[in-house]
């Protein structure tokens, strides 16, 4: 799978942050990136066109990130959701994980953290594919 095949959605109510993150992703070779300004916008886009990765801000107006996270997973449990937040407290992290988040980036962040989360995705993604292949081998006989 090519980097540019991976579909990414960036959800944040701050346009500068969306632009910054999109910039980071493009520089890392992830070109298929779109943006949403809030949870409702995000869900509308995801229903039409599912994404592999969603960067999802927690502190957003209308519908916060955790609510959106739950909705995303109801709709498509395989989505790799990376939360963005200004709060790094352990409780927040645990809440995100318990609701199915696969990553957590604390604002402000450097491109290094974005790179880390993409590495995390790649590792998980490949592992999952590998597991599926093994399962198919066993049941295919």
């Amino acid at each position: 799978m090519n980097k540019s095949d991976i579909k990414i959605l960036v959800v944040d109510d701050v346009s500068e942050l969306r632009a910054f993150l999109t910039g980071c992703l493009k520089q890392l070779g992830f070109l298929n990136v779109s943006q949403a300004r809030d949870g409702i916008d995000a869900m509308q886009q995801l229903r039409k066109n599912p994404r592999d990765i969603v960067f999802l801000d927690i502190e957003m107006p209308k519908q916060n990130g955790i609510e959106t996270l739950k909705e995303i997973h109801q709709y498509n449990p395989d989505t790799f959701v990376i939360m963005l937040s200004c709060h790094s407290s352990l409780d927040n992290v645990k809440e995100a994980i318990s609701n199915g988040a696969s990553g957590f980036i604390v604002k402000p962040f450097s491109s290094d953290k974005v790179k880390e989360s993409l590495l995390h995705f790649t590792k998980n993604f490949v592992e999952k594919r590998h597991q599926e292949a093994v399962v198919k081998d066993i049941w295919g006989q």
Binding site: E59, C86, P108
Partner: peptide
């Protein structure tokens, strides 16, 4: 201010942050 802070930091405006 909260939103402002996050952006300042992410874009590297340390003093502002």
């Amino acid at each position: 201010i909260h939103t402002f802070k996050g952006t300042c930091g992410s874009l590297g405006f340390k003093h502002l942050y």
